[in-house]
């Protein structure tokens, strides 16, 4: 038996979510009295692979196959299923990000394994196997029983902390046969965003709404984000208007995020917006309207004009950080 965790890397370096997944998988393995095994697909060197061991993983199955250079959901599913069978995995854990959302449901069908998607905590119990997940776009949570022998969990990003437990993991290089004729998705072009903190990865997110008044007013907001090592985000009308790029749109129909700290600046706090940010650990609201619904979701608030408050905040951060 084992708990299998599907990791992701970016140009040979593990994404932060891989360590979150490894930490989570190790805890689930503990609950089941078994070990966590990580699967890595790509060109990742041994020292990077071994980092997974720092988060409790006992073994790392490493697959480096040119045919898997690009993501083809069918081909990847076959590989994960093969490793899950080889490792007799009872639980398979993936991220609830774009990749995980594409792969986990396929695996579920392939292995006849129930899936708990968008889980944000350790399983509530292992017998029956019950997970805690978001429902009704954050307006409720569900206790969901996974009724099959093999179970799949997709973990919401940023919802589980890194837990360091050095285990001294071993690396097993494994080769798989990929049927190239089955690859029907061809990647023609890749446009990478470089140098920017990913909004789904970020621990702090600074977000602006229509109350920012104009696309020309974003400078202090961006400066605040830079000082805090934060990603920038926005409400839907702001991206619809083209004030900011679509990648920044958070909410029910945009990105669903769970940073430690979310600044909502000039954002009213419509239900559809809150749906995407309600899992943030802390929300700070800055708004001229004391009755804005966003204050109902926030732990800290400033009633005031963003254009006046933001420059002062920037100064305050400089002062505090300077010390």
């Amino acid at each position: 038996m084992s708990v299998l965790v599907f990791t992701e890397n970016w140009d040979g370096k593990f994404k932060k979510l891989s360590f979150e997944l490894a930490s989570y998988a190790s805890k689930v393995a503990e609950m089941l009295n078994t070990n966590a095994v990580a699967l890595s697909i790509g060109n990742v060197d041994e020292s990077e692979l071994k980092k997974l061991g720092n988060y409790g993983v006992k073994k790392i199955v490493n697959i480096n196959n040119d045919a898997l250079k690009n993501l083809d959901d069918r081909a990847y599913t076959s590989v994960i299923a093969e490793i899950a069978q080889k490792e007799s995995s009872e639980v398979i854990i993936l991220s609830n990000n774009n990749m995980g959302k594409g792969l986990a449901p396929r695996l579920s069908v392939r292995l006849k394994a129930a899936i708990g998607a968008g889980v944000s905590q350790l399983p509530l119990s292992t017998s029956p196997f019950t997970v805690y997940k978001r429902a009704f776009s954050g307006n409720a949570f569900a206790h969901l029983e996974l009724k099959t022998g093999v179970k799949i969990i997709t973990l919401a990003q940023n919802s589980f902390e890194l837990i360091e437990t050095a285990n001294g993991a071993s690396v097993e290089n494994f080769s798989v046969n990929v049927d190239a004729s089955n690859i029907k998705v061809q990647v023609k072009d890749v446009q990478k965003q470089t140098g920017k903190i990913l909004i789904t990865d970020a621990e702090i997110v600074v977000s602006g709404g229509r109350g920012m008044k104009s696309p020309d007013n974003w400078e202090p907001l961006v400066e605040l984000a830079n000082l805090l090592g934060a990603a920038t985000a926005c409400s839907r009308p702001v991206s619809d208007e083209g004030w900011r790029s679509h990648e920044e749109h958070t909410g029910q129909t945009g990105k669903i995020i769970a940073p430690n700290l979310y600044f909502a600046i000039g954002i009213s706090g419509a239900t559809q917006h809150i749906a995407g940010v309600s899992s943030s650990k802390y929300i700070v609201a800055i708004n001229t309207d004391k009755d804005a619904p966003i204050f109902g979701a926030a732990q800290y608030g400033i009633i005031g004009d963003a254009s006046k408050v933001l420059p002062k905040l920037v100064e305050a951060v400089k002062e505090v950080k300077g010390k």
């Binding site: 394994a113 019950t130 307006n139």
Partner: peptide
């Protein structure tokens, strides 16, 4: 493959400071 055991409402957040 799955069964909802129960639903619950989100935990109320501490009031805004």
């Amino acid at each position: 493959l799955t069964q909802v055991v129960s639903f619950e409402m989100p935990k109320p957040r501490a009031s805004c400071k």
